[in-house]
Amino acid sequence: MKYEVEVDINMPRESVIRLFDNPDNMKHWQPGLVRFEHLSGEPGEVGAKSKLYYRMGKREVEMIETITCKNLPNEFSGIYEAKGVWNHVQNHFIEIDENKTVWKSVNEFRCSGFLKIMIFLMPGIFKKETCKYLVNFKEFAESI
């Protein structure tokens, strides 16, 4: 399944990137994030791997992030893998003017097991969750 979502952020692109590219800020806009742990490679650079730990309700989810493209301020992309889920995310940051940036997120999901059924029956859930993260980031960034 593939989809795109975007959000307008009322900030200069340089400021958006500074906030986005700092892993310490993730807890401010990713609900349920418990911990971010660097595993290998140069932190924050192409090829780097990190483990993200989330609490989602009563479940704990571990996800591996592999950075596949870091061409900031234009693009930051990665592959996110968890049990039964493979997600390729391309984040594009488009400067509209000196005080407005569009964050466009292009997502491709491949799932197995129960999640494969979920994608088929309710694909909107994945898109809605992605939108939530983008809006959370917008609110966090614009509140600073």
Rank of each mutant, 00 (worst) to 15 (best):
I17N: 09
R18A: 15
L19K: 09
F20E: 00
N22W: 00
N22T: 12
P23T: 04
N25G: 05
N25Q: 07
M26Q: 12
M26A: 07
M26P: 00
K27Y: 14
W29G: 08
W29L: 05
Q30L: 15
P31M: 11
L33G: 03
V34N: 09
F36M: 14
E37Q: 08
S40V: 08
E42Q: 11
E42T: 13
P43N: 05
A48N: 07
S50K: 04
Y53N: 08
Y53H: 15
Y54F: 15
Y54I: 04
R55V: 10
R55C: 02
R55W: 06
V61R: 05
I64N: 01
I64E: 04
T66H: 04
T66S: 09
T66V: 12
I67Q: 06
T68I: 08
T68Q: 00
C69Q: 14
C69S: 09
K70A: 07
N71R: 14
P73V: 07
N74F: 09
S77H: 02
G78R: 02
G78Q: 01
I79R: 02
I79T: 10
E81D: 12
A82E: 06
G84Q: 05
G84D: 09
G84Y: 05
W86N: 01
N87Q: 11
H88E: 13
H88C: 01
N91I: 01
N91T: 06
H92P: 01
H92M: 07
I94D: 02
I94F: 08
E98V: 10
N99K: 13
N99L: 14
N99Y: 12
T101N: 03
W103R: 00
K104C: 06
K104H: 02
V106A: 13
V106N: 11
N107H: 14
